[in-house]
Amino acid sequence: MLRAVENSASVVVCSACRLSADQREDSEGRRGGALLVDAMRGLQAQEPAYEAIAVQDMPCLFACQRHCTVHVRGPGKVGYVLGDFTPDADAARAILDYALRHAASEEGVVRYAEWPQGVKGHFIVRTPPEGFVCT
């Protein structure tokens, strides 16, 4: 059930997530999460700065009331689950831009003023790093 991945700055994308609140998949039968993974990896191929963030996919993050859900995480850092994205290049860029700021932060806390516009309103939950709770 578990697959080892690099323990680094990463975005885990729910590859089974719905396309939208109203649609499960697109006309070709592809889920929104899979499209978002493709968009993120496509941006990484075009822009080397994004290669610093591992894009990892898994079949379910159990946020099934939402669509296009991701988990931004890094070793020893507060993590964040975000959702309700449109699976396109704009969302992919906003998520990766936020993930770069998250990776550069000491504890995973990015000042609101530094959040890309495309992630505002998409936060669902924050997760403390293993062995810690937030104060």
Rank of each mutant, 00 (worst) to 15 (best):
68 C>W: 00
84 D>M: 07
66 R>A: 12
60 C>W: 09
75 P>D: 10
67 H>F: 14
68 C>T: 05
75 P>V: 09
67 H>N: 10
87 P>D: 04
70 V>N: 03
66 R>E: 13
71 H>E: 09
69 T>V: 15
62 F>M: 13
85 F>R: 02
68 C>E: 04
71 H>V: 07
79 G>P: 03
70 V>T: 11
74 G>E: 06
65 Q>T: 14
62 F>A: 14
62 F>E: 08
63 A>Q: 10
87 P>V: 01
61 L>T: 00
60 C>E: 10
73 R>C: 06
72 V>K: 01
69 T>Y: 02
83 G>T: 06
76 G>P: 08
89 A>L: 14
78 V>N: 01
72 V>Q: 05
75 P>T: 11
86 T>S: 12
59 P>I: 14
88 D>G: 09
81 V>L: 07
80 Y>E: 07
66 R>Y: 14
68 C>S: 09
81 V>G: 00
82 L>K: 00
64 C>W: 10
75 P>A: 11
60 C>S: 15
62 F>L: 10
85 F>W: 06
65 Q>E: 14
84 D>C: 12
71 H>C: 07
67 H>I: 04
85 F>S: 00
62 F>N: 12
61 L>C: 02
88 D>W: 05
73 R>Q: 15
71 H>W: 08
83 G>I: 07
72 V>R: 01
83 G>E: 00
87 P>M: 08
78 V>M: 12
75 P>H: 09
73 R>Y: 06
76 G>N: 09
84 D>I: 07
65 Q>V: 13
89 A>V: 15
77 K>M: 06
74 G>I: 06
71 H>F: 11
83 G>S: 14
72 V>E: 03
84 D>V: 05
85 F>I: 05
72 V>F: 04
79 G>E: 01
76 G>L: 10
66 R>F: 10
83 G>V: 06
84 D>K: 04
77 K>P: 02
89 A>N: 09
63 A>G: 15
59 P>N: 13
62 F>S: 13
78 V>W: 00
79 G>T: 03
72 V>S: 03
79 G>H: 05
81 V>M: 10
62 F>G: 09
72 V>G: 00
82 L>I: 07
89 A>E: 15
65 Q>P: 09
86 T>E: 15
59 P>D: 15
86 T>F: 10
62 F>I: 05
61 L>R: 00
61 L>Q: 00
60 C>P: 10
78 V>R: 05
59 P>W: 11
79 G>I: 04
62 F>W: 08
59 P>S: 14
78 V>E: 03
85 F>G: 02
72 V>I: 15
76 G>A: 09
88 D>P: 01
75 P>Q: 11
77 K>W: 03
63 A>L: 10
89 A>Q: 14
65 Q>S: 15
66 R>L: 15
77 K>S: 02
74 G>S: 14
70 V>L: 11
84 D>R: 07
64 C>L: 12
80 Y>G: 06
73 R>P: 00
63 A>Y: 03
67 H>E: 08
75 P>G: 12
